[in-house]
Design a protein around this nucleic acid. Structure first.
Lengths: 139, 139
DNA sequence: GTCACTGCAAAGCCTTTGCAATGGG
DNA sequence: CCCATTGCAAAGGCTTTGCAGTGAC
């Protein structure tokens, strides 16, 4: 996604554009699609933005999330952020810890949900197992 | 589920049967299907088991999970436990906080996953929105 | 100029850990 | 009897909060 997509989304939600926010945007853009913790982002950008703190990174990620450009999910006791806002599965390898996006046919799931009478705004699918690379017969 | 289902599952996984474990089993059995935090269980059973601590409840829930009778998912910064081990969605109402089980057709999802080459052991689907009861036009 | 945002430190959850004492098999 | 489990206290990880100073608009 273009930088302006993030900037415009922030503006639309009445958030200000700060250098710190731009640095985080550049980070997630250049690592998309991917999965980040606040701490990971903090560690990666603090050379570029030496006064930034972890609390600010959390604040920025919350703003990005409110403006709709970032999604989150919780697993293993921490919160993960991602730029892939389409419905998909997040496969977490129990061996190496890597997270992979898995395309999912949304219809099969959403069909059931609508029938429940609840208004669904957001869906998060977490899968756990052993990834391709960690399977014993991996070549 | 019967009490023996939990007991036998624990034994099969080489866990011992303690009075504290039976108390937790009775609690989840009498609240099934449902969604519990460790603290909720702790608060509910401490009158019956006055010396128990939160750490022990966590320990017991971990044993139940390893023996396959309890599943967990994380949301809102805490871990939820449930006895419904079949694949299903957990709908979390952003307004009242209640959690509802939603039946999901597993095939639509698993079809995609198998194709990815990873070995999936477990799937958790979390849905967020406004529940039936909280919708403005609720009668 | 104003109000949101930043940086900092501290507090606040939730969960785990270490260890001595206990008791289930 | 022995080793897993308990109870207790303390520590640990992740995230939020409060507040004074700064800077985006």
């Amino acid at each position: 996604m273009e930088r302006d997509y993030y900037i415009d989304s922030l503006k639309k939600s009445n958030f200000k554009i700060t250098p710190q926010r731009l640095t985080v945007i550049d980070y997630v853009r250049s690592h998309s699609p991917g999965h980040f913790t606040a701490e990971e982002i903090f560690n990666s950008i603090k050379s570029e933005e030496p006064t930034i703190t972890l609390a600010t990174v959390y604040n920025i990620l919350k703003a990005l999330q409110s403006s709709g450009t970032v999604k989150t999910f919780e697993t293993g006791g921490s919160t993960w952020f991602e730029t892939n806002t389409d419905f998909h599965g997040n496969f977490v390898c129990s061996n190496c810890g890597k997270i992979y996006d898995i395309d999912i046919d949304e219809k099969g799931i959403l069909g059931n949900i609508e029938g429940s009478g609840n208004s669904v705004q957001e869906a998060t699918l977490i899968l756990r197992g052993i990834c391709k690379e960690c399977l014993p017969d991996h070549d």
